[in-house]
Design a protein around this nucleic acid. Structure first.
Length: 465
RNA sequence: GCCCUCAUCGUCUAACGGUUAGGACAGUAGAUUCUCAUUCUAUAAAUCGGAGUUCGAUUCUCCGUGAGGGCACCA
């Protein structure tokens, strides 16, 4: 059995979206699972729509998601590696000419209207096509049988000649795709089900070249979630672009894990799995046949689960990277020890890195906002003014050296007044943070320090007198 | 219109032809923690319809229906 060689062949004509990422992932997983090669080929024959920026985005997105390629352009875009290049179709014109000549010589291609057409074999007849509103020439021939790893045998009649070189001299997708897969010795073509109808054309081309087609595996599509509408995910849909998750500081391994579960499962109830485990278990016949609707909430949940288990150092690195892009970067990152302490208080509480700035704002500025609704609620209960005054009196002599000592101080105060910890917690939190959500109040007190706590309590009390 | 594919809770999915149809996300209700979040417990929620094969069908077959994709000198 020869080595598995799979390829991901994107066009740099737009943002890198989730469907492309999933196709890339299944190819990558299969290559890694089988010990084969994962090849990146850039299909940039559409000169009008290509852009170097989108090309860069392909490299960056794959790299960010952890999908390394064995052959193809280098991740930095400079040079390439592999013995079957060039890996950009724009640089393969000579190869295409050679293969075109082969078809011409074999009588399987001909010119018409300035373009070159692939010639189907069989008896010809004319028929009116009411989708294209014109008369077309068809060919009677046995249907193409595609033996698909996921769908079984699929039969489809391929009954018309089709263009392989445009009148502008450029080859079209079907032709370059097949020629490249032949010359790059691709063993398995794993691609979206939207290509299933193209595959019969491709099989005829392989036959025209006298080459046995590779193994096909057409994976299900990713569809819009019910609230987004109908049809497959498109670039315009919310949450469709990998770039968006990157900008929102999602963890790439969470995205990979979520994506792997769209159309595949390990055969048991496990969902959260390290990528090495997914690689170990992934296989083509286990891929589902039905399309999957995208669920942003489940992705967000997966991201949170991954975030919670990050070791402190990784979380701090992520947080630092995030804050460096924020307006408050200078203040927030000024004191490393202070930053570390606060980030580690926040880690078990947040659902995503992107919440960090808002969640920790009051640690870094005195002009934090006060949530009006929370204020209304807290002020309506008990005697908050009295509690504040008592806290202000108690704080100067309290021990702020640890969470436990702060807690003791508040509990002593409460006991002396015949009250509970909770009677002080809510109003203290409101005064010091402006909200009702956050880490434990004792930790907030300790980290903020006596002076700032006292100042905030006094300021808040003054504001409600 | 023609061709191809698919069909289990709202969503992602599991179930050698024999299970009280399981898990997860999202709901709902409780519990726990100083708040919030986490966590935990409980709860509601599905085999598209109709025939057939079979002792027995979510599972196999056919017909409907629904969903998705394709039908270019885009990829």
């Amino acid at each position: 059995m020869s080595q598995v060689r799979v390829r991901f062949a994107p066009s740099p004509t737009g943002f890198f979206h989730i469907g492309s990422a999933r196709t890339a992932l299944f190819n990558w997983l299969y290559a890694r699972h089988t010990g084969g090669k994962f090849i990146l080929r850039i299909e940039d024959t559409d000169q009008a729509r290509n852009s170097e920026e989108f090309l860069r985005l392909i490299y960056d997105s794959l790299t960010w998601l952890g999908m390394d390629w064995d052959e193809g352009p280098n991740p930095n875009g400079i040079g390439e590696r592999g013995d079957f290049g060039p890996y950009r179709q724009s640089q393969r014109a000579d190869i295409y000419k050679k293969y075109l000549q082969q078809l011409l010589d074999a009588g399987r291609a001909y010119e018409k209207d300035g373009a070159v057409w692939f010639k189907m074999l069989g008896e010809r007849y004319k028929v009116y096509d009411d989708h294209r509103k014109k008369e077309v020439e068809r060919v009677k021939a046995a249907p193409v049988v595609i033996d698909d790893q996921i769908r079984g045998k699929v039969e489809r009649a391929e009954d018309e000649d089709f263009v392989i070189f445009r009148s502008d001299g450029n080859p079209v997708f079907h032709f370059v795709n097949v020629v490249d897969d032949i010359t790059m010795k691709i063993s398995h073509i794993i691609r979206g089900e939207d290509h299933l109808s193209n595959t019969s054309k491709h099989v005829r081309l392989y036959e025209g070249f006298g080459v046995t087609p590779p193994v096909f595996a057409h994976i299900p599509l990713i569809l819009k979630s019910p609230e987004m509408g109908q049809g497959k995910m498109s670039k315009r849909d919310k949450g469709a672009l990998i770039e968006e998750y990157r900008q929102r500081y999602f963890l790439p391994e969470a995205i990979v894990n979520y994506l792997s579960l769209l159309g595949w499962n390990p055969g048991d109830d496990r969902e959260k799995m390290p990528v090495a485990e997914i690689v170990r278990l992934f296989d083509l016949p286990a891929v589902n046949q039905s399309n999957a609707k995208f669920d942003g909430k489940k992705l967000a949940h997966m991201n949170m689960v991954y975030l919670l288990e990050q070791p402190a150092d990784r979380f701090l690195a992520l947080a630092k990277n995030y804050f460096q892009a924020q307006a408050t970067a200078q203040t927030v990152l000024a004191n490393e020890v202070y930053f570390r302490e606060i980030m580690l208080l926040a880690q078990p509480k947040i659902k995503g890195i992107e919440e960090l700035a808002a969640y920790t704002a009051y640690f870094f500025a005195e002009d934090f906002s006060v949530d009006a609704k929370v204020k209304e609620k807290v002020m309506a209960k008990g005697d908050p003014k009295a509690r504040l005054a008592e806290l202000i009196a108690a704080v100067p002599t309290a021990d702020f050296s640890s969470d436990a000592t702060v807690e003791d101080a508040i509990k002593q105060l409460a006991a002396a007044k015949g009250l509970g910890f909770g009677d002080y917690q809510a109003v203290a939190r409101l005064a010091v943070t402006g909200t009702n959500a956050g880490p434990s109040i004792t930790a907030i007190f300790r980290v903020l320090g006596k002076e700032r706590v006292l100042a905030r309590l006094q300021k808040f009390l003054a504001g409600i007198q």
